[in-house]
């Protein structure tokens, strides 16, 4: 994923709202740095200047000074009221969705993001949007609370299981940006990372036209390889034999898989299909039943492609059926 680190404190802002958020961030940063410097400089100066040497020196009993006390109450209060109003104004803008926004449905689920476009296209972990166009996200969760966070856009919104939440943004530059889940949601929380791909309006139209990854013109195997990442299998299943949240896909086809409870099942096309659509029907021994169901998320041709892809992951020596 691309490196988005920009300034010391903030990543580059690439939405219409980011500039305003950053301006306030910087205002607070500078004002509080000055305040902090004053407090610490005075402290250090007093400590050095009035350091006790030898016997205790006599000190005065003066314990108030009305002018001083009014000053240090009123000045911070004024500063803080400025910050409050400023923050609230931008927050309102973040809450009011422009009328002409494209609406995309976002579903959070352990542990991936699914996006449904009004045109019928759907994707997983990849949100493709046009540049310079407001995009409204209508979000809900299928299980626990997640939170949708795109640092470069300065937006974040919880994704709840019992109601819709809404956020919106307008990207100002094409490119790829990270999308994080920021509400703790279990084992795969830190793998619940997607990306937002901002493209030109032309490209966006073409992409929608092509039905996202329809896989047309690709072999089943190649198409499956693409789905393996775009549908988030990659977050839990490796293709090189290393274990993850789920078992690896390498040399899977043709073996007998041991299930929880001790039974074993031959890994054939039907077993693979069942594992994808109804993963908890039979759970592989040694793994937690955490795989989400892809019922309704994958089309038939996509399931075929994934199965073809898994079948292709055999060692050249072809030790299937060990």
């Amino acid at each position: 994923m691309m490196d988005t680190t920009g300034s010391t404190f903030l990543p580059p802002g690439q939405s219409t709202i980011a500039g305003e958020v950053d301006a306030l961030f910087n205002f607070i940063l500078y004002a509080s740095t000055v305040l902090f410097a004053v407090v610490i400089a005075l402290t250090i100066y007093f400590v050095i200047r009035y350091r006790r040497r030898g016997a205790v020196a006599a000190t005065s009993g003066k314990d108030h000074n009305i002018k001083l006390e009014i000053a240090w109450t009123v000045i911070p209060t004024i500063l803080i009221i400025i910050v409050f109003i400023w923050g609230f104004k931008t927050y309102l803008k973040m809450s009011i969705v422009p009328r002409d926004a494209i609406e995309i449905k976002v579903t959070g689920q352990k542990w991936f993001w699914a996006f449904d476009y009004p045109e019928g296209v759907n994707t997983v972990n990849e949100l493709v949007v046009p540049v310079d166009k407001p995009v409204k996200l209508l979000m809900s969760s299928k299980d626990v609370i997640h939170s949708f966070f795109v640092p470069n856009f300065r937006i974040k919104m919880d994704v709840l299981p019992n109601r819709y939440s809404v956020t919106w943004f307008e990207a100002t530059a094409t490119g790829e940006y990270n999308l994080f889940c920021t509400e703790f949601c279990g084992t795969g929380h830190s793998e619940m990372i997607g990306k937002v791909r901002v493209v030109s309006e032309r490209e966006y139209a073409d992409w929608l036209e092509a039905g996202a990854v329809s896989g047309e013109g690709l072999s089943l195997e190649e198409f499956g390889a693409g789905l393996y990442t775009s549908k988030a299998c990659v977050t839990c299943h490796s293709v090189d034999g290393s274990p993850g949240t789920g078992p690896t896909f390498k040399n899977k086809y043709g073996i007998r898989q041991v299930m929880q409870g001790g039974s074993s099942v031959p890994v054939d096309e039907n077993y693979l299909r069942e594992s994808i659509l109804n993963p908890n029907a039979r759970v592989v021994a040694g793994y937690a039943p955490v795989m989400p169901t892809y019922q309704g998320v994958l089309k038939d041709r996509e399931i075929d492609a994934l199965i073809a892809f898994i079948k292709s992951l055999q060692d050249s020596t072809g030790n299937s059926g060990e």
Partner: peptide, 23 residues
């Protein structure tokens, strides 16, 4: 504590908190 308190101002400011919350 002064740093702790001053950084609280970032979090009390609504628009900035949206970015910083849960980070």
């Amino acid at each position: 504590f002064t740093i702790g308190g001053l950084t609280g101002i970032f979090l009390g400011a609504l628009s900035v908190d949206v970015h910083l919350h849960d980070t």
